[in-house]
Design a protein around this nucleic acid. Sequence first.
DNA 1: CCTGATTGTCATAAATTTGTAACGCATTCT
DNA 2: AGAATGCGTTACAAATTTATGACAATCAGG
Lengths: 242, 242
Amino acid sequence: MTVTILVVEDELAIQELIALNLKKAGHIVLCASDAEQARKMVNNILPDLVLLDWMLPDMSGLEFAKKLRREERTKTIPIIMLTARVQESDKIAGLDAGADDYVTKPFSPRELLARIKAVLRRRLPEMSDEIIEIGGLKLDPVTHRVHVIATDDPSKATEITLGPTEFRLLHFLMAHKERVHTRAQLLDRVWGDHVFIEDRTVDVHIRRLRKILEKVEKENLVQTVRGTGYRFSIEQTEEAVE
Amino acid sequence: MTVTILVVEDELAIQELIALNLKKAGHIVLCASDAEQARKMVNNILPDLVLLDWMLPDMSGLEFAKKLRREERTKTIPIIMLTARVQESDKIAGLDAGADDYVTKPFSPRELLARIKAVLRRRLPEMSDEIIEIGGLKLDPVTHRVHVIATDDPSKATEITLGPTEFRLLHFLMAHKERVHTRAQLLDRVWGDHVFIEDRTVDVHIRRLRKILEKVEKENLVQTVRGTGYRFSIEQTEEAVE
DNA sequence: CCTGATTGTCATAAATTTGTAACGCATTCT
DNA sequence: AGAATGCGTTACAAATTTATGACAATCAGG
């Protein structure tokens, strides 16, 4: 998964150290030494995650975090705070402006990477570009294709075509298989946060997705959980046959 | 787990930050700035947990906690106190009023969420979405499935299908096993607050639940306690076996 | 500016769920 | 025993929840 990370840190030595490690881990790294620089950077390229030093020359990290949270475009970006020492007084009201995690200096690169991974997994599991293959369906986020694997001959694969929304919906469901998702949750995570769309619209898209899956007899992977929502699952809920 | 939390805190900045964090954690948040507002709110929507500032403009948090404890409808709601001081004497007074836990300012969102989770697990086990497995029945709130574990081969599991209400009912009973629940209690906690439904309706749902459990010979897990209500128990109240 | 694909909403149909009422059996009380 | 109470069962109609097809608005390219 190629993730773009913005590092906001005024001490150049530390900044570079972090950047080096992140690059080594395969991330794209953007660096800024103060909030103003960071702001410009964000305007230019939207990062997937922000590593934010608690103390910055021009504005406290806290302020900057709040700022990010306020703007529509940046409000959902995960933020990890880099705080010097474990001084409780630093954690001020202790309440951050919505940071997703803290890392206290000094920290090991290993720890930092682990935290980053954890936050990303929590916030954007379906953003990882890994191919997902479940129940005879193979979805490749990179090529943006979905294939049906023939059960008898795994080497054969038929492609199926999905619209943009259906693709994202299927991607999300597959990335979070075996879990029930309410319509509200799906709207939040597939359509985007704070969208003002009817719950029922989800039904329609599920319908569209199923219609396409019907053609390859995979429609029962998308299951209805009455009173709750929908679920992607291999396990078939067989009705009690009398 | 969708939990409704009422935040009673007069400092708006802190109130908002708490609300933000709670929402991010997937909770539904209600806010009040003083006891009077909080009272009205509680009358309207019964929260699952109350975060209560120690000092409020119109009434001490302590007073408000006691008030909640006095009323039938609210007496079981878990309360977490937000206190600026750590004085032992206060702690005792608070425990007296029935607070379930304390968080002293300043605190980190992580800590607050952890405390909330702990309190909920203790007081409202059916809200936590952990898998519950008792007497050969395994209920998973996340996937929303119920399985019967074969006694001879624990790896085999047959799924059973429940309607929404039966699922909630079984979930509640399993989360509070070995306890008798009156019909009124079940209506309050499974159907929800403020519902005006006949007591006898519970019987019917118990019946429906049992009917499904009969198919897998688990119906005696749901037991009748004559004159009181129902109970989920492994222990068999064996009648004169014929 | 046209063309076809995509999307959000509705209206309607279909499927399930749910609360009550009614009846009968069992247990307890008088 | 006879009455009273509590519970189990069944049947049903009302209410709720989903599925589905149609439609208009919007969008992306030509």
